[in-house]
Amino acid sequence: MTQPITARSATDLLSLVPYLLGFHLDRGLVVLVCTGRSVELTMRFDLEMFSDNPVQVQARFCHLAARFEHPRFFLAAYSADRDEAESALAILEQVLELDEVIESVYTDGKHWWSRLCDQECCQRVPCDTATAAVASAVLAGSSALGSRAELERSVQGPTLLAQSQLLGAYTEASDRAADLPDVLDRCDRVAELVTTGLEQAGLGEVEACELAKLVDQVGPRDEAWLLMQRPTARRHAALWHQVVGLVPDKWAVPPLCLLAAAAWLDGNGALMGCALDRAHQLDPDYSMLGLLEQMRVAAVHPSMWEQIWPDSA
């Protein structure tokens, strides 16, 4: 989300979590890291992590939180098992001062219960998925898929049947790329295709496959990466999401990494993670993948992009 969204209550913040994650969550623990009036980082933890290695979770949480000046935290645990959720919340609360916690809540998806306030107004409060905050988020272009599994499926590429129907596009794309042996010519063509894709909200099948084939080389790939800017990151992500959905596995890793890079710039850590996970399955030694995975683990803020590449501001 790049436009200001106003949340006035725990109900509002809970309603926004799916739009911050990119999908609806029914099990897990979410932490919103806030500074001033802004959500700087959204973290999601599997509940198993708290029972398997609570000290490691606490250490990772503290490491990430230490990057922010005077942060405050909104904690929300989702589960049908209240004891499991509250145990996880307690583990994080142990490393926080009380005044650092905006709210700590358990939710079963239908109601929420505060761990900080035992008054009736904060116990078994109905969840509202149609708050004014959600309306503002949707109007700003945010969306939330039904589950993380649905998000994962969106980066899996075409089925074998779809690939058979795209053989003509693959052949034409390969021929076009072969007609541009010079790296600088390929970079120019990548810039042209990306610009067109952003302006037209997508490319034709042949052009999208051609783009994937061109970024197989490092120079053209980096040209596409350096064209990204935070204000247009969502459109870049949409373009590379389209490309990933069309190309076979052997062409997919560079587009997946570019999708992850654009998703990171857009603050969409869930999409970034799904794209990187599939890229890792296909080619764990790919160089750009390693860099992006380090950025994900360190929770590098998208604002760092302007420092890394000032011309992108």
Rank of each mutant, 00 (worst) to 15 (best):
S9H: 07
T131N: 00
T232Y: 11
E293Q: 04
V253P: 00
P181E: 06
H301D: 13
A65I: 03
E192S: 14
E103C: 06
V183P: 08
E150V: 09
E84F: 06
H111N: 14
P255I: 03
Q94Y: 05
W309Y: 12
E86I: 15
S104V: 07
V95L: 01
G22E: 08
G146Y: 08
T159C: 05
L47F: 01
T6K: 12
N268V: 07
E207G: 04
S114G: 10
K213F: 02
I5A: 05
V55H: 00
V190P: 00
F74E: 02
C117I: 12
W305D: 07
R278F: 01
R176T: 15
H111V: 10
S114K: 02
P54E: 01
V253K: 02
E48Q: 08
I91R: 13
M304A: 15
R148P: 07
A133R: 07
T131R: 01
A299T: 06
L239M: 00
L166E: 06
D179S: 13
A10T: 11
T195V: 09
L96C: 14
E205A: 14
R153E: 06
D179K: 13
L289S: 06
Y286L: 11
R37L: 08
V57T: 07
R124Q: 14
A262F: 11
R176W: 12
S164I: 03
W225H: 08
S9A: 09
P126V: 13
T107Q: 11
P220K: 01
V57P: 00
D179H: 14
S114D: 11
P54W: 04
P54F: 09
T42K: 10
D249F: 01
L25T: 12
G109D: 03
A7E: 03
M288G: 07
D175M: 10
L184A: 12
E210R: 04
H24D: 08
L151D: 04
Q94M: 09
E40I: 05
G202T: 10
C187Y: 00
V194D: 06
L198H: 04
T11L: 13
G157Y: 05
